[in-house]
Computed example of a mutant assay.
Amino acid sequence: MKRLFRSRQAHSPPPDVEDDVALLAAAAEGRVEALRTLHTRHAPWLRMRLSRRCPDDDIVDEAIQDTFLAIWNSAGRYAPSRGEPAAWMWTIAVRRLVSLLRGRGNRWIGSGVPLEDVQVPEGSVEDVVMLKLGHGDLATALQRLSPELRAALQATVLDGLTVREAAILLGIPQGTVKTRVMRAKARLREHLA
């Protein structure tokens, strides 16, 4: 159990929000060491979470690079009232990944690779569950959802964003996020029944 707990800790965003706010302020002033510290602190968990959405390591690495370039260029626009720094960075990272994937075809998780052909990593239970989520009946049901419903469900349920954060990420009102998640869950129940 201790090994499992340590593994999850390694993939979670750090809890020191105030320090991240100070680092973003320093990056806004042009201090490269602040960006370097943010990268060291956040790139590993961003990479892990983006890898759940895209199996191509090169695209994920490019998205991470684009993310930190965007953070460097827009650190002065971060406002603590809009959410935690980690959520803000995650929003940027997801948008960068989506932009990269648009021109390269659909490589989202659940792309139809048989589960037998997938190597299960020695990681946390969360990693194993997320990997298996991309295969089998649930993956098929998720693929049957419209892109709008799937995106709302993925942002709130799989990625753990709040409704407010998902609304900002998806560029839609909070009520629309709630409605889409409710509809997505109902459709999943129908497909899995």
Rank of each mutant, 00 (worst) to 15 (best):
Q143F: 11
V128A: 08
R189A: 13
R144C: 09
S51D: 04
G112H: 15
R107I: 08
R95A: 03
L145D: 03
R107Q: 14
R189E: 08
A10H: 15
V113R: 12
T140R: 05
A26W: 12
V125W: 12
P55Y: 05
V125Y: 11
P15L: 11
D56T: 14
L24E: 07
I168W: 02
D61F: 04
Y78K: 03
F68H: 01
R6D: 14
A25F: 10
R3L: 14
D16I: 02
R144W: 09
A186D: 10
S111I: 07
V157Q: 06
V118W: 11
L24I: 07
T156D: 04
W72I: 11
R52I: 13
E122G: 03
E122F: 06
N106C: 10
Q65D: 14
L188C: 14
F5W: 04
K132V: 05
Q119N: 05
I64W: 00
A79Y: 06
D159S: 11
T156K: 04
E126W: 04
P13M: 14
V120G: 11
S7F: 05
L100M: 13
L153F: 12
G30D: 06
H11Q: 03
R104N: 13
L169I: 07
R52E: 13
P121F: 10
E148M: 08
S146F: 12
T162V: 08
L46V: 12
Q174L: 05
V181L: 09
L23V: 13
A75W: 01
L138Q: 02
L192E: 03
R82S: 14
G105D: 15
L97V: 02
D19T: 12
I172W: 05
G175R: 15
V128W: 04
V120S: 08
E116G: 01
A28M: 07
V118E: 09
F5G: 05
N106H: 13
A151L: 01
I59Q: 04
L101A: 01
D137K: 10
I172R: 07
L158E: 02
A79K: 06
L46M: 15
E165M: 03
R95H: 04
A75V: 01
T67G: 00
P55N: 07
I71D: 00
A79R: 13
Y78F: 14
P44G: 11
T67L: 02
L115H: 07
D16N: 12
L4G: 06
E148D: 09
Y78V: 13
H11D: 00
K178L: 04
E33K: 14
W108E: 02
A184Q: 09
W45G: 00
S74H: 12
A151C: 03
G136Y: 08
M48T: 10
P15K: 12
W90T: 02
V118S: 08
T37F: 08
L170Q: 00
V120A: 15
A93R: 00
E33S: 09
D58V: 11
L158K: 00
M182G: 06
A25N: 08
R95E: 02
R49W: 07
I64C: 07
L192I: 02
G171C: 07
L153A: 07
W108R: 01
I92A: 01
R41L: 11
H11S: 05
N73W: 07
F5N: 03
L100W: 05
R82Y: 05
L188H: 10
S99G: 15
T67H: 01
W108M: 03
V98C: 01
Q154F: 04
S124W: 03
